[in-house]
Amino acid sequence: MEKKKLIRGRPDALNDKIMHYCPGCGHGIVHRIVAEVVDELGIKDRFVGIAPVGCSVFAYWYFNTDFHQAAHGRAPAVASGIKRARPELIVMSYQGDGDLAAIGTAEIVHAANRGENITVIFINNAIYGMTGGQMAPTTLIGQKSTTTPLGRDPRKAGFPIKISEMLAVLPGSRYIERTTVTSPKEVNKTKKAIKKAFELQMKGEGFTMVEVLSPCPTNWRLTPKDALKFVEEKMVEYYPLGVFKDEPVFND
C-alpha cells in the first residue's frame, strides 16, 4: 500500500474537541488560524487567551493554552491586568462585536490608547449571535435582526460603528487591520495579519488588533454559502478591508 504523508495536521495549540459553533460560522476558522500562529511563533507555553461573553465564551474548550473567561465587554481590561502582572506572557483578547463594540467600548478604547501590549482578535459578524440574533452595534443599515424586524433604521437605532477606523486614530494603537475569512485567499491574509499582530506584541510594540468580518448564517437566516456572499458584498462595502494603522507608537 502506498505510504501516506501528513501534509497538514491539527495545530498543537488546538485540541480535537468538536466545536459547538454553527455550520458556516467563522469562529472555528479564526480559532484554527490563531492556533497555527501560536504554533509557528512557539508561544503556546506562554500564551493566555481571554474568552469573552458571546458565542466564543467557551473558546477555551478548544485551545491547549491557558485561558481566562471575562465578563461581557471587559476582556481588554482582563487582558491588560494579566499582561501587567506577567509581562512575559503573550495575551490575546478574543471578542465579538456586541462585546467589544457596545458594552465594552470604554475598555477597548483605553487599552488601545494606552498602547497596551496585547493583541485583540475582533470577530465582527454584525449581530448578537449567542442571544439569538438581536441588533449589534455593527448591524448594517437596513439589516434585519430580531430587534430590528424591519431592518436597522439609523434614525432610530443609530449607525453601524466602525471600530478599526476609530481605534486607528488613537496615538496608542500600533497595528490595526480588517480582514475576512470568506475564501482561502482571505483566510491566508487573516493569518498573516494575526501573525504580525502577535509578533509586534512579542517585540513589545503595543496595542494590536485584527478585525475579522465573519459570517453568521444562523442568525442572518442565510445558508453558509449565501452568508459568505453577504460578507463579501454587503459587509465589505461598509467595512472596507485593509490596514488602518501600522506605525510605531513609542519612539524611545
Binding site: V78, S80, A85
Partner: peptide, 11 residues
C-alpha cells in the same frame, strides 16, 4: 476587571 485578570494570573 484589571484586578480579575491580575488575580487570575496569580499575583
Amino acid at each position: 476587571n484589571y484586578l480579575y485578570g491580575a488575580a487570575g494570573a496569580g499575583v
